[in-house]
């Protein structure tokens, strides 16, 4: 199942409802597409894609509305993910913005399709990432050059929480503040799970806020699934001019899908088994149903009169599924 027209997302953006509710719809529709992409590919990092989705949607759709036409502008706002394995979610958001095409997202992890980790050859991708720990340094370089060249726009980079075990992260936290690179915003997708276990049981990050503050950063913390709270933090950040900024976004790995939300999985299991891999046919269908029913409820609750599924094609997956010969 796939939302087969990006123009449909445009339509949602034009609804007369508040941005937070729009973001909720877009996020869930992107979840459908991400799930389908991973299902067709047969693999992909599903847990982190879902935990980062709401942050992607807010930043790409509402904070910085990066359309196809301004992808090459020197003054554009730059956003990328340092952990990179959340890229199926980012692709689905880029598709919802009209940057990627349907044919692209149907070919996740294929030789003529989209790479398993971000690559500059793909429209809308700002940096090659995936090997953990490099993102803040790279974003810092972009900020420095923007300042030097007099280009407008800020740089936002998303990291993982497990990623904060990499030594380079601490090199970069230290140099960024020392070098007065204050137009940089870092967001930690703090979903508490790295691969299959709690971050705190692998190597505890302890008091992350105090730690990062000690490096000379302005730190905020909020629910990474609440669009209004994310929005508030970004507004606060705009007022902080003398420090680089970091948001610890508390998220849930697998957010939006009952079966794979870590808070539920870890009650039953010792290990989180949805870090990567694709759902079975049965699981996939259940997950899609869950998202659809949530969207329907939201529509009736808010007394909206639009059909969110007019552009969802049920057959699309089946067709592409067969043509790609994947089981």
């Amino acid at each position: 199942m796939i939302v087969s027209s990006y123009k449909y997302f445009e339509k949602i953006r034009k609804l007369k409802i508040n941005d937070y509710l729009k973001a909720e719809f877009i996020s869930d529709l992107c979840r459908i597409n991400t799930l389908t992409m991973i299902k067709i590919a047969g693999s992909g990092h599903i847990g982190t894609s879902m935990s980062a989705m709401d942050l992607f949607v807010w930043i790409k759709h509402f904070k910085y509305h990066n359309k196809l036409k301004n992808l090459k502008s020197k003054n554009r706002n730059i956003f990328f993910s340092s952990k990179g394995h959340d890229v199926p979610a980012l692709y689905s958001v880029l598709y919802s913005l009209g940057v990627l095409k349907l044919n692209d997202i149907l070919k996740l992890r294929k030789i003529d399709g989209l790479d398993g980790h971000p690559d500059l050859s793909i429209k809308g991708i700002e940096a090659n990432t995936g090997s953990l720990g490099m993102g803040i340094s790279k974003a810092k370089g972009m900020c420095w050059a923007k300042n030097k060249l007099g280009h407008k726009g800020s740089v936002v980079v998303l990291t993982g929480d497990g990623e904060f075990q990499e030594g380079q992260i601490f090199e970069s936290l230290q140099t960024t503040s020392h070098q007065n690179i204050n137009n940089l915003i870092v967001i930690i997708d703090h979903n508490k799970i790295q691969s299959s276990q709690y971050v705190k049981s692998i190597i505890d990050l302890r008091d992350l806020k105090r730690k990062v503050e000690a490096f000379g950063w302005h730190v905020e913390r909020c629910d990474g699934h609440s669009f209004s709270k994310i929005d508030q933090v970004f507004k606060k950040f705009e007022k902080v001019k003398n420090k680089p900024k970091l948001l610890i976004a508390d998220t849930i790995k697998g957010k939006g899908l009952n079966k794979i939300e870590h808070t539920k999985v870890m009650k039953k299991n010792k290990f989180y088994n949805w870090h990567s891999g694709a759902p079975s046919d049965k699981e996939y269908n259940e997950m899609i149903k869950e998202i659809i029913s949530r969207i329907k409820k939201k529509i009736s609750k808010n007394r909206l009169n639009f059909d969110p599924f007019e552009k969802i094609e049920k057959n699309k997956l089946i067709k592409s599924y067969k043509s790609l010969d994947i089981h």
């Binding site: 700002e126 490099m134 340094s137 370089g141 972009m142 060249l149």
Partner: peptide, 24 residues
Amino acid sequence: RFIQNGIAEQDMVSMAGGIALQGM
């Protein structure tokens, strides 16, 4: 046009990567 990055080679190299992406 001179960046003293301290004894942090990994950070320095990735920072250079970001600068190069901006066309410098």
